[in-house]
Amino acid sequence: MIPKDHLFDFMLIHADTSLIISQRLSEWCGHGPVLEQDMAMTNLALDHIGRARLLYQYASELENAGRSEDELAFLRDELDYKNLLLAEYPNTDFAFTVTRQFFLDAFYIDLLDKLSGSADSRLAHIANKSLKETQYHYKWSSDWMIRLGDGTEISHEKVQNAVDRLWEYTGEIFQPAECELGMMEAGVAPSYEELSDSWHQRVNSVLAEATLKKPQSTWQQKGGKTGHHTEHLGYLLAEMQYMQRAYPGLDW
């Protein structure tokens, strides 16, 4: 049996990551580099918000404290958000957006694959649905890494810069939080060492095809899973939570 609070925290890490990345992606709405990519990014945002909802709904049931999916999504303090720092990094430009997505997708594609065989059937069901979406996201983001890396001199420089800049947020993905350790022990979550190996293999192969260099720097930021975020998250939450904070407790 997995302790319920571990399962709850685990849901929040991934629900929050999905919600925050969805929020970032949806900032592109109407401003994409070409109409087809505007649609693709809206589609990613939509998949992520759908996933966030399934995870929050499950979290809400696990917590059994009467907090709805919306209360979990909109009415917590910044310290209680457990999303990966990578997800909150600003869009900056298309190269950053693609790189951020690629680093996350390269993790989720394996995590979800493992979780879809999880002993927790509800989690397995959500993972299975999400995996199909992430396979498409991974294709989108890895294809764009290659296009931009092996495109023009300008695009190469921009995407290399994004890889270098975002690299310090990738280590956190594989540093298990307490709940993740608990889930691993219970055999519900896969080993993060294995996931990290697989992530590096994927990243190596895509960066090589994209003619991009893998950064050498080893220092890694952390804090997302324990609620210590970058300065960027506060602004994102202020915007996202505006209606719920301004008009508490209403139906919309």
Partner: peptide, 19 residues
């Protein structure tokens, strides 16, 4: 308004509409 939609359901519907 996508980034300020008042709840998750409305946010998802609005995104789908814009798409």
């Amino acid at each position: 308004w996508v980034t300020r939609a008042p709840n998750l359901k409305r946010k998802a519907i609005l995104l789908a509409k814009i798409q």
